[in-house]
Design a binder for these strands. Structure first.
Lengths: 231, 231
DNA sequence: GCAAAAGTGTTACGTCTACACCCATGC
DNA sequence: GCATGGGTGTAGACGTAACACTTTTGC
């Protein structure tokens, strides 16, 4: 690429991925042992330096695939960490991105084979550098976001049951919700499409499956909205 | 600084400041003519490459002071722009930060002397690169934020009247609000401290001045809250 | 038949919206 | 005395929160 700037210093730019997984009612975080020489084998978020031919989101997707085999994960920018001393290995900023996925949709063995592992959110190990801060920031964001947006729309693309979605909210907020009110509010948004199929994996009776009406969601999002599912 | 990373390429990292000014009821944007050789003299947000000894926020404050004389502006991170071709001058990412200030608090001549100027938000010139996108993103963020947070707390530190604050909301949302409802909701938050002084600059009767109860605000913020001043 | 989870309605309460007039003052 | 912006109250609509029992089915 051409370079028309002569002043200014270049620095390292990394991406780090905060991937929350929702697995049988438990919220987990994806972590792996660092491969680079500095701080090798310590636990870390999945990350990489950004390459000349990719933007931050592409870099995050690439490294996530390399290290876990996970593909097509929608990640949202969290924040860029730029403190001078944040990385003792060199001056390096990191663009953190986060996502929330339903673990059952993915091959857990694949992740393991690649050297990554899932930790329960309530029992996290110490991570390198400022990665602990990133995780807490991402949790806060997730909680705030879920008050005003129906999370799961972008983050849980597959079909799901209402009790599953409620459980997701309960895990994120660490708080029991009233199932009647949750269901009522959720359905009043008119964003769910009933599939008239039942999922019997978590009860004998079975719960009806739904998917999100993605187009409707997008239209509403453009106009701004308040989708708090509780106060 | 030590460098323990051998792989990875360094790239340029810039900051850009989206400074909205609220001036006698009108929302304005701070713009200046680029000084660097590439695209010199075209209109641009105020920005700079980040230096080895400063983080993004410090870089933003530094360049803002250099170019406008404005000091002690609280800026919040908006987003990091990383597309490969976003800057035709070189591969360069930009960490955008925004703020909203009350223009009357600052010396407008000073800004002008330094070569910057204010444009009305409804009559913006074309800016270089992706700066137009940044401005639109910042406006969207400002609107969303003002639905859930009492903006002005961090952004308008000085004493103010309720009609002034209402006007700010109206300008941001391009929409008239009901003064009774606005006042009622605002006061119900219990975040204002009455100063028992009147500002007569915009009416004969004069309007009472208030300031924010910053401590109370911070406490509430930590617990998360919903402060929409209207729907 | 019983354990386990899914599904369903109503009422009380609080908040939001819409709406119109008097007040204080400078000129 | 009048024009200008500041300040006030209420009723209806709407949304939220609290609350317990029935249904379905696999075992």
């Amino acid at each position: 690429m051409t370079n028309r700037y002569d002043n200014g210093e270049k620095i390292y730019v990394a991406v780090d991925c905060i991937i929350f997984g929702f697995d049988e009612g438990v919220l987990k975080l994806l972590v792996f042992k660092r491969l680079v020489n500095y701080l090798k084998d310590e636990l870390s978020l999945i990350g990489s330096f950004i390459k000349p031919d990719e933007n931050a989101n592409e870099a995050a997707r690439r490294v996530l695939k390399e290290i876990t085999g996970l593909e097509n994960i929608f990640m949202e920018e969290l924040k860029t960490y730029t403190d001078v001393d944040r990385d003792s290995g060199a001056r390096c900023i990191s663009i953190a991105q986060y996502s929330l996925i339903r673990l059952e949709d993915y091959d857990k063995q694949l992740v393991k084979k690649h050297g990554a592992q899932w930790f329960e959110i309530n029992d996290l190990p110490k991570l390198v550098l400022d990665h602990d801060v990133m995780v807490q920031d991402a949790l806060t964001r997730l909680r705030n976001k879920s008050k005003f947006y129906p999370i799961g729309i972008e983050l849980l693309p597959k079909q799901f049951t209402i009790p599953q979605l409620q459980n997701l909210y309960e895990v994120i907020h660490q708080k029991k919700l009233d199932s009647r009110n949750f269901r009522k509010k959720l359905l009043s948004l008119n964003l769910l499409i009933a599939l008239n199929k039942k999922d019997k994996s978590s009860s004998k009776k079975g719960a009806f499956l739904y998917k999100f009406d993605y187009k409707k969601y997008k239209k509403l999002e453009e106009n701004g909205f308040n989708f708090s599912l509780f106060k």
